[in-house]
Design a protein around this nucleic acid. Sequence first.
DNA 1: TAGATTGTTAATCGATTAACAATC
DNA 2: TAGATTGTTAATCGATTAACAATC
Lengths: 211, 211
Amino acid sequence: MKSMKISEAVVRRLPIYLRFLNELNRMNVTTVSSQDLGSKLDLNPAQIRKDLAYFGEFGKKGIGYDVKYLIEKIRQILKLDQRIQVALVGAGNLGRALCNYNAYLQDNMKIVAVFDAEKSKIGQNMNNLTVLPMSELTDTIRELQIRIGIITVPASEAQNVADRFVEAGIEAILNFAPVIIKVPPHIRVHHADFTTDLQSLAYYLNKEEEA
Amino acid sequence: MKSMKISEAVVRRLPIYLRFLNELNRMNVTTVSSQDLGSKLDLNPAQIRKDLAYFGEFGKKGIGYDVKYLIEKIRQILKLDQRIQVALVGAGNLGRALCNYNAYLQDNMKIVAVFDAEKSKIGQNMNNLTVLPMSELTDTIRELQIRIGIITVPASEAQNVADRFVEAGIEAILNFAPVIIKVPPHIRVHHADFTTDLQSLAYYLNKEEEA
DNA sequence: TAGATTGTTAATCGATTAACAATC
DNA sequence: TAGATTGTTAATCGATTAACAATC
């Protein structure tokens, strides 16, 4: 059923499927079973079949999934078959690192504009992009039809940047700042905070290693 | 009950509580209710109370939680009251960015060694650390009692690095490379892959913005 | 045909939320 | 005491997994 609402967990797995399918495709593998996918990605095969079945009948009983066809379908589902322009605010080390990942992103998705509030950063070159002042944010986002915003500024500035993004009409935000940002309900926010990741890892360490 | 197993979702929320509690503490707020926490962090108050109750009775009925006391308790739970040394492999832009986050990490947790396979990177300075060759990885991890490893190398190298970490006795890994890595069951791995984050965000964009 | 694997239903498992007695 | 808020149980909601008929 096209119109039932899909859980976030399912959506988060789709890019992982896609990445491995692309790898298989590069290796000229033409067909893959949910079994194969599951063992490679550490997921239950039934879960993979169910995830995909939310969107259509992509497989063939007794055979599995056609790699190229499934890639095409997942790209459509994730809207990666459209051009998706991304803006980044915060031209520090992290921002620079992410800009360099442009190559890793799916062809149509690209960081196309970088902004910073600090005078010293403006005009700098970052992976072929020139760092722009915040005053140009709104116009640039509208002109380039930028739909996703990335925040890599310090925590104290993150909410301000989010507000600017929302005002400029961005539809989704990926926030790397270590703070929860508030946005209107129609805007999607993902938090990608490496400090909380690392701190939760500590929980799983063994008791006290050191004396 | 101390010995019941705690769900991953709970553990992932603890650092978020901790971060906000630290902020309250800096602002000299001494007491906080699950209500307050919930509205600030966009979480259900009942969930917060339940999360905390897994570990003990930290609150006072009719009053709420003592900020300083709760900070202390969560730090204990997450083992952030111990010194936790972290190693990072991959001295590229992302690695450099993460090293600079050292200040953001909870006092006792620190990146204390950086490695890279490329000759040109070795000897470089990264936030007061000298980039070391891979040949020194095992010895350094043992000598400095490093317990967590961060992977910021290209996808093709990530599994190799993970294997080296495991062999050297690391207990947990935070992997930034866009690939699923395999480790023995006693090693904890978190994946912090920004490309899949961004791709799943695309799903939530509105239909077709452009013509 | 025999073997393999999907799509899907039913069963299980787990996580979130509501409700409220206990009590500060 | 009256009001507030916890800790916890029960109810709800949602996600994962098992099982299997359909079928390539």
